[in-house]
């Protein structure tokens, strides 16, 4: 009896200690994301625009990504942007290694951690097929700053441009009518940030 009580107490203490090992920042980040679209479910087309690595990490439990994000068409502020397929996202790490990912039908792209463990900081450029020679790629955009540690493009690229974000990753010169833009209904509704009309963090 005495041994049983002691075992129970030890188990209780162990459970309490394990419960305290969570990351409240990540937990809140994940909880605040919109629910899975039941019409699509988990898969390579799901949750466009959301910060992929929040869940696709050792903490989140989904297959781990080194890098993940979504490409959008450049639209006016009052339009929901379409997602763009077929662009190559080239990521360079600080040891001279590079990997390509191609945006899928819902604009999503990712590189699995099993395939590449890049040394941060990273530089990113986006390329498109060259109309003159389809096997060649031409640069269409590049990031002006380094990625220091965040594997989710949607960790910084949130909503419309603001003082705390450069906005979603939108390809200059594109629109919802571009040939490789997603058609409404074929992809989940993209996540464009917590609330585009909420007061901007840090605003006076």
């Amino acid at each position: 009896m005495r041994t049983t009580t002691r075992t129970c107490l030890l188990l209780l203490a162990a459970s309490a200690a394990l419960a305290g090992c969570g990351d409240p920042y990540r937990d809140r980040l994940i909880e605040n994301l919109p629910a899975e679209d039941p019409a699509f479910g988990p898969g390579e087309l799901h949750r466009p625009g959301q910060p992929c690595v929040a869940c696709h990490s050792s903490y989140g439990g989904a297959p781990e990504f080194a890098i993940g994000g979504t490409l959008f068409a450049a639209t006016k502020v009052d339009e929901v942007p379409a997602m763009l397929s077929g662009y190559t996202i080239r990521v360079h790490d600080s040891e001279g290694s590079a990997r390509d990912a191609v945006s899928n039908a819902c604009g999503n792209f990712f590189i699995r951690s099993d395939d590449w463990n890049p040394a941060f900081p990273l530089l990113v450029e986006i390329l498109a097929g060259d109309p003159a020679g389809p096997s060649a790629l031409v640069p269409v955009s590049s990031m002006g700053s380094r990625i220091a540690r965040e594997g989710s493009c949607g960790g910084c690229h949130v909503g419309r441009p603001s003082p705390i974000s450069p906005g979603i990753v939108a390809i200059p010169g594109t629109s919802n009518a571009s040939p490789n833009a997603s058609v409404v209904g074929t992809c989940p509704t993209p996540w464009l940030g917590p609330d585009p009309h909420a007061p901007v963090q840090g605003a006076k």
Binding site: P121, S145, R146, A148, R149, E150, I164, P166
Partner: peptide, 8 residues
């Protein structure tokens, strides 16, 4: 450039 990225 070195320290001021949005993720740092």
């Amino acid at each position: 450039q070195r320290c001021g990225s949005l993720d740092c």
